[in-house]
């Protein structure tokens, strides 16, 4: 087990360098001069321009820039944004907000998937199953930004049940509505996975054995049907966790949440190399770690899987 974890972490090293290099290259290859762009219409003093170029290593060749940047990263210096803020500070401020939003969305998604999937699977072909499929298809086919606008307008503004924008007030309650909307647009996959494995487990031989022992369905359903069906759903949910952290740009934009997604979006527009590279690198690391955790979770959920 330990060997496996070590091996997976070692594998993450080339992933780390590969992504950062790729991102750095893409930022470098973007057209336009970010320093010139900072001055807008004004003509800058060439000496100031030169000083700024030097500060951001923009006068060096690409590959040197990359290694200078990596050196800074490993000494704990993530660089500064163009407005002079430390990128590390920006990350520390925005990351917890996004994490909160994503955790809430993932928990809601998981609960929806498991509960609706379990009932649908047990009542296959009945009213609940059919209507949950129709609802799921409707929710799944609405693009997430449309759903977010609709929720913002009707629930936030018309009904006033939840704050229509989040702003600086990043509490759990304030972010519940956007989290729920995200959950509703992505729970379908997990729900169908759960339903499918419940249907399979329901007819499994070991379920019949459990019933033949004299167990009632109050015990057979949670212990032998639901427990076995959770494995694919948990994997799916955990995998969506990584994707969600990276994919909250739209949600954070619409609900004005000061999180990673919105900051990253602005940095891309401004061409802030250090901010973009740092954020994407952190997201990559999180994605890799979440995936390792998912694989380890497999072994916990299914005793047949052992890593050596």
């Amino acid at each position: 087990m330990l060997m496996y974890v070590v091996r997976r972490l070692l594998q993450a090293i080339p992933v780390f360098f590969g992504t950062t290099f790729l991102i750095y290259f893409m930022v470098f290859a973007m057209p336009g001069d970010p320093i010139l762009a900072l001055f807008g219409e004004k003509t800058p003093n060439p000496a100031v321009l030169e000083a700024l170029r030097e500060q951001y290593h923009l006068d060096q060749p690409f590959i040197v820039q990359y290694f200078l940047y990596m050196k800074d990263v490993f000494t704990g210096n993530f660089g500064t944004t163009f407005s002079g803020q430390d990128v590390g500070d920006v990350l520390a401020r925005t990351f917890p907000v996004t994490l909160k939003l994503v955790i809430m969305a993932v928990v809601l998604e998981f609960l929806l998937a498991v509960i609706i999937g379990l009932i649908s699977g047990l009542r296959q072909g009945k009213f609940f199953d059919n209507s949950s499929l129709v609802i799921a298809l409707v929710l799944n086919s609405v693009p997430v930004f449309v759903a977010l606008f609709l929720a913002q307008y009707f629930i936030g503004i018309k009904l006033g049940w939840a704050p229509p924008t989040v702003g600086a007030n990043t509490t759990w309650a304030a972010m519940f509505l956007p989290a729920l909307v995200i959950a509703l647009t992505i729970y379908v996959t997990g729900m169908r996975l759960m339903r499918g494995s419940v249907i399979e487990a329901r007819d499994a031989d070991y379920v019949r054995t459990a019933q033949a022992k004299g167990l009632t369905s109050r015990r057979v359903v949670p212990v032998h049907i639901a427990r076995n069906s959770l494995i694919p759903v948990i994997t799916n949910t955990a995998a969506s966790f990584g994707a969600l952290i990276a994919g909250t740009t739209v949600t954070e934009g619409i609900f004005n949440i000061p999180g990673v997604g919105r900051t990253l979006y602005q940095a891309i527009i401004l061409g802030e190399g250090p901010t973009v590279v740092t954020f994407v690198t952190i997201l990559t690391v999180i994605y890799v770690i979440v995936n390792i955790l998912v694989d380890l979770l497999y072994a916990v959920l299914d005793p047949r899987i052992r890593y050596v």
């Binding site: 499994a204 031989d205 379920v207 019949r208 054995t209 459990a210 032998h224 076995n228 299914d302």
Partner: peptide, 14 residues
């Protein structure tokens, strides 16, 4: 009741 197939009749996760 003792079922037929010993491979599929025990729950693999318990």
């Amino acid at each position: 009741y003792v079922p037929q197939d010993p491979m599929s009749n025990l729950n693999p996760v318990w």
